[in-house]
Amino acid sequence: MSELEFPTSLGTSSADEIRLLGRSLTEDLMGEVGFGELAFWLVALRRPTPSETRVFEAVLVALADHGFTPTAIAARLTYLSAPDSLQGALAAGLLGGGSRFLGVTEDCGRFLHEVLARDDALRDDALPGDDAGWDALALAAVRRERAAGRYLPGLGHPVHKVLDPRTPRLLAIAEEEGLRGPHLRLFEAIGRTHEEVLGRRLPLNGAGVCGAALADLGLPVDLLRGFALLARAAGLLGHLAEEARRPIAMDAYLAVDRNAVYTDPTDSSGEA
């Protein structure tokens, strides 16, 4: 018998049983636990409350799809090129989740967490007691980022120039469930105060508010992009199913390829 041991708190299996999170997969989990609830449980190693599950699954729904984004286009074009490799097409879309698309969820959650940790505001007795206190904390953070020449994650959206409709809805759900915590409150305060420093008003990004909500659920900020990718995997699978039914990838490819115009690399004007 091998003396090697590889400890895990996740899944184990034997010839006649599969166990997950210390429970029988077939008797305790299948048909009893939703996928979103399980995803939370696998990371946090604790079963979420019904309120936490509602907020968490609202985040997953909010991030599942946003139309013909670069991630969706990448998946569809890869599927066009290699229809025999569904996994490759799905992976291509997920690999595009970065600082401009999807990665905002993690970047925003991490930024808010760092602000709260910097000011020791995560201690319950140190949290601001009213909007004025949150605004002061937010304003100081915005000024620091501006002075350092850094962008504030979670502000602005390429499509929703005035209001990202996901933001107020997720805030409302968190409030209903008693889970509008310090990360969400700080994010809201940034929304109220940033114009004073930046000189213009930008909407609070839906992916950013998702990061704040996930951080308020106590999930590790270093893993928040993973939850965005988990959600987007469902959306990408939907895009690939639609591509098989009603393809557009060939048209997208031909539109670019047939309109490509050679430009002399020494021409600095950028004109053809």
Rank of each mutant, 00 (worst) to 15 (best):
D65L: 13
A44W: 00
D107T: 06
G129L: 14
D125W: 08
L163E: 14
A75R: 01
I18Q: 06
V142D: 03
R110G: 07
W134M: 02
S268N: 14
L223V: 07
G235L: 09
I190L: 03
V197Q: 01
F187L: 15
V59N: 04
L236F: 15
R169L: 15
F56K: 03
H160D: 11
L25Y: 04
P220N: 01
D28Y: 00
P50N: 06
V142T: 04
E196H: 12
F111C: 12
V221F: 13
P247E: 12
R245H: 08
G208E: 05
P182Y: 10
E27F: 00
W134V: 09
P158I: 01
T26I: 11
A132N: 04
G11A: 14
V55G: 02
V209G: 05
Y79I: 08
L122H: 03
A260Y: 10
G109M: 02
L217Q: 02
E52W: 11
E32D: 14
V159K: 00
A252G: 08
A212M: 03
G22N: 06
E243D: 01
A15C: 06
V261C: 03
G238L: 06
G98K: 07
R200I: 01
E27W: 00
G103H: 12
E114S: 13
P158Y: 00
L139C: 05
S13T: 11
E175D: 10
V55F: 02
G133S: 07
F6L: 13
Y262E: 09
F6W: 12
L122W: 00
T193L: 03
A75M: 09
G206T: 04
P153G: 12
L10E: 01
Y253F: 13
A189W: 03
G178W: 00
E175I: 12
V162Y: 12
D84C: 05
S24E: 07
S14A: 14
M250I: 11
A272Y: 10
G67I: 05
F187S: 10
S24Y: 02
G129C: 11
C210R: 01
F6D: 07
I18N: 09
D130E: 13
L25H: 05
L179F: 07
A138C: 09
G208Q: 09
S24Q: 07
Y151D: 15
D251V: 06
R150S: 12
L94F: 13
V61Y: 00
E176W: 01
D264Y: 02
A244M: 08
S14D: 03
G238A: 09
A89P: 00
G67K: 13
Q87I: 14
A89R: 05
R258I: 05
R166T: 04
P182M: 12
A74G: 12
I73S: 03
A272P: 12
L29S: 08
P70I: 05
L214G: 04
L202I: 00
F40L: 08
L45M: 07
L230Q: 03
T193P: 04
D16V: 13
E177N: 04
A233D: 09
Y79K: 15
A207L: 06
R19M: 04
V142G: 02
M250L: 15
E176I: 07
